[in-house]
Design a binder for these strands. Structure first.
Lengths: 221, 221, 221, 221
DNA sequence: AATGAATGAGGCTTCATTCAT
DNA sequence: GATGAATGAAGCCTCATTCAT
């Protein structure tokens, strides 16, 4: 239904995606600087020249990857969150969703949290990425404050703190020798974060339905 | 007083230090991969050949830098903390010290939080670094739990969360267009973290003597 | 009137011309090596593949361009010259025509005098080009010698000298920051060249009707 | 006497010269764009990397070559000319010297007259080069006018014309299938040019001592 | 100890040409 | 006839490392 048009038009789209997939795999191990365009070409099973037909620069590939990946994740969080009405519940769900997604997509997480830090030119990009998540969190916290669910606090700093906490937990998990299940960290993390903004212990005790999906495919897209 | 006799022996030491200082400055802007040995040589005002007399490899310089820098920072935190006896107070002081030190040494912070993440081979190193701080925090939290000051929690995850929070706050500050004073974030950060582990609001309200030092030298060493 | 029937046949011709026009524009700025087939395609508003349907090679396009452009210019000179009967007058008119045409077609001149010199394989082509003009000049000079208008001289070398003089004057004008009117150089140039072959000062003083056309279209073809 | 300093200092100088020599040979056949840095490296018997220790860019090599080559030629002309006092004689000697030098150094001539025309970025450089010679010629002509040896003429245009004539004669000679002796063209060329500025036939008839050196080494430097 | 020159592998990018559609 | 995607051979440049002095 979405791909009705002629084949040629999709050809291009297909190649772009193929390249992005290959780039994703390649960047995922090794970061930006340590990944050669040759690696991407090999992973995408296309010639090096073919890549440059679709992208002007190695950097452009990376940036696009960052952007679309972020889009997907933010989209996922937002759609999941839409099911909840209570602001705190929303924040909880957002945290859980990020954890879920990352638990399934180790590689995506690696790209997110490591690749961006390397090169000089990506700090801005990384910043935007982090901002998007922090902003999401902040909006939920603001709602919570507005509803009186939690006391008035500096939601800007708080959102940064929450995101940093999430980030580090995921990063540690990624670097662990034999990583356990990331979801196991959720209850503790949830309690810590909720408590940090003054959610009552009673509320914290109400653990919502722990519906973690069973498995996640390891692929991109 | 320490460098009186033994010129020859100290010569070597002096050069090593000179190189490390230069390397610090160089790595600080640009990260590992984007910093050439030539950059280090220029910053250290030594020839490239000279560098290779003292270090076998660019990587070796970086690793040593990570290690010694971490030593200095951990040492500073530990000595500051030694003045406090209450575990929570210790944790507070540790947080504040890290913030203080980083507030003065933007560049050191950048090296810490960004440079390390780039290359494939440094994840372990970065990990160790993060670990040392997290362990420090964990030990204070464990003491607090043992003393009954805070409820029993998973101090491992908590220390990771705290460190992540700190990390992100500093990182954001580093990337801000016109960064304000990092110390201004301290009260909010402190309250969030203490609250997250169940410290009573009464205790949180007792803000300790806000003795931030006036200025920090921008140099390494 | 010339393109009435035979659409299919002319189609091909039209495309070839379109491509040549684009190639002309493209080669004109940048020379041979610095002009990519993509540039030609863009200028001709045709696809790269389309170009390769009509020409086997980038080089073939260039050669054809050189040839046809030279044809046009030589044709113009010859037809203008046909109006004069006196050999010296013919030479004068030839000089003036070249100057005129080049004054209007800066770009054509650039292609002529610069693009050709670049690649190894085009020296012969350039040579032919220069030869045609030099031969033209030589034929007029030979006539003048035969008629006794000027003393017997080495007309081969002289034609080369004249052509070189013309070439350089145009080249300088092309490269000038704010070029004046090329026609302004004509009287001096004329006097120098005529004098060089021994035309009498009296004859030189008879300046012919200075009928420079007002404007030149900037297009090719 | 000029190279007294230590060996190391000369090492650098020696390499630079070696590279320039190699570059000269390489550029000489093929022009700028068609000469690869690898070709230069091969000709100079040095590694490609070695070249980049001494020059930042292929372009920089070319520009330096143009400049130093021009320096040498201008210097030669000026020192030869110094022996003459009569302005016309000076101009004659200048022309002859250029012809002499080029006759011996075909390759130098090729570099001069062909290589420069190719790339987009060298027009300015070529211009400067031509300017230097034209200026030289102009200064002699100006002196001649001042002394009343020749009538008042536009010496600017005249110098351009002279240079263009020289240029083209040399260029033709370079492109000829079986080039004769360039010096053979001198008498005709001389007569044409002198006549063009109104030098009397009597003066032209006084051919100065035709002391062409016997042979020229084919090497650069 | 230290220097500066040299090396060579490898990286990013360009581009003439081919080809399936 | 024409298109756009793909190829692969170069090309320019970087840079960690080595080495003679």
């Amino acid at each position: 239904m979405r791909r009705q048009r002629s084949q040629p038009a999709d050809h291009g789209r297909a190649s772009r995606e193929t390249i992005l997939d290959g780039a994703f795999q390649a960047f995922t191990k090794g970061g930006y600087r340590d990944t050669a365009v040759d690696d991407i070409a090999a992973a995408a099973e296309i010639s090096k020249g073919g890549i440059y037909f679709h992208f002007p620069t190695k950097e452009a590939i990376f940036r696009e990857l960052m952007r679309t990946t972020a889009d997907k994740l933010v989209g996922k969080v937002e759609s999941t969150v839409a099911a909840e009405s209570d602001p705190i519940a929303r924040a909880e769900v957002a945290i859980r969703t990020v954890l879920e997604v990352f638990a399934g997509h180790r590689t995506m997480a690696r790209l997110f949290f490591e690749a961006g830090a390397g090169g000089r030119g990506f700090q801005a990009e990384t910043n935007v990425l982090h901002d998007r998540f922090a902003n999401l969190i902040q909006s939920y916290l603001d709602d919570a404050v507005a509803q009186g669910t939690i006391p008035a606090i500096d939601t800007r700093i708080t959102s940064v703190v929450w995101f940093g906490a999430l980030d580090e937990v995921v990063a540690r998990w990624l670097l662990a020798d034999r990583p356990g299940r990331l979801e196991d960290a959720y209850p503790t993390l949830r309690a810590l974060l909720l408590r940090s903004v003054g959610v009552t212990e009673a509320r914290i005790a109400e653990v919502p339905a722990p519906t973690f999906p069973a498995a996640f495919p390891e692929q991109h897209r």
